[in-house]
Design a protein around this nucleic acid. Structure first.
Lengths: 158, 158
DNA sequence: GAAGATTGACCGTTCAATCTTA
DNA sequence: TAAGATTGAACGGTCAATCTTC
């Protein structure tokens, strides 16, 4: 496993592959979504979480936990999305501190347009290159790594 | 492989695992490097490429190709790093348009401090969770995906 | 015209401080 | 005091336009 100071060749190979892959994947996906549907990648993640929720709405802090985002990041982002007419923030009656977040009709339309673009891009840039068995293998390994990560600090669920 | 419109469960699982993993990994690594050595993750990548180069220097466009960065991103970042005394930009004699980039003594010290932090974090957050065989497997699969990616546009090598 | 590089405007993200309500 | 959320400053990154030199 190399010295404490340096990664060995195999560790470095895995790290570099992950780095290069992620930069390309997220970058291209972001650009395509923006060009084809007017949603950025962060916008898409927000809309996806909202649409998947029981009544198409979530408390802001629930959304933060769901996405693994910091409070301030979420707040800034929701403000921008509200300005662009993609989501609404509604004061919560049962908890005076809270906010409900829900998509507008315009936001829903943008998400409907973005969904096939997203699926096609993920498939073209990632999953389409691997067989069923290989997809299962890479999912298992990645999930194993995630399970061993220490809990991050500074996030909504900490 | 699901419909053209939607990712199937297995594709979605692989995509989500990659997304969650990357966000955690890059986020934590960035914070640790900054806290322990005063270098951001992008700073670290720049220094690593420079130190690995023949005479500890690269032409700006070579650095861009190496990192897969856009020209403007590179230019902005080098300006910030120069302001903080981490690198120097030196006019190129043989090509009046060109710039050499090289680390300062202070930059080299910061990188020396950052290197063990980087190695420890990558190992703790990623490679340390996998066996030798698993690391090889995930590297191979990731490299396969990268090889199948269409060439990105807007980068330094395009 | 193309290559190497820079700039300014704008969006995205983090950090620390703050505000309000529970 | 803690939880939910917001704010402003500063840094990071993208896009389109620009400038100089080849």
């Amino acid at each position: 496993m190399g010295t404490p100071q340096n990664l060995d060749d195999l560790e470095n190979r895995a790290w570099l592959a992950h780095l290069r892959f992620s930069v390309s994947l997220f970058g291209q996906l972001h650009r395509e979504l923006l060009r084809e549907a007017g949603l950025s990648l962060p916008d898409y993640e927000v809309m996806e979480a909202l649409i998947a929720a029981p009544k198409d709405r979530l408390r802001a802090y629930e959304l933060g936990v769901e996405l693994g985002w910091e409070k301030s990041r979420l707040s800034h982002h929701l403000k921008r999305m509200e300005t662009r007419g993609m989501v609404e923030r509604i004061t919560c009656e049962s908890d005076g501190r809270g906010m409900w977040v829900t998509p507008t009709e315009e936001g829903r339309s943008a998400f409907d347009a973005a969904r096939p673009v997203h699926a096609a891009a993920v498939r073209r840039l990632f999953t389409g290159s691997l067989t069923h068995a290989q997809l299962e293998a890479i999912s298992e390994l990645t999930e194993k790594v995630i399970a061993n990560m220490p809990d991050p600090s500074g996030l909504c669920d900490s």
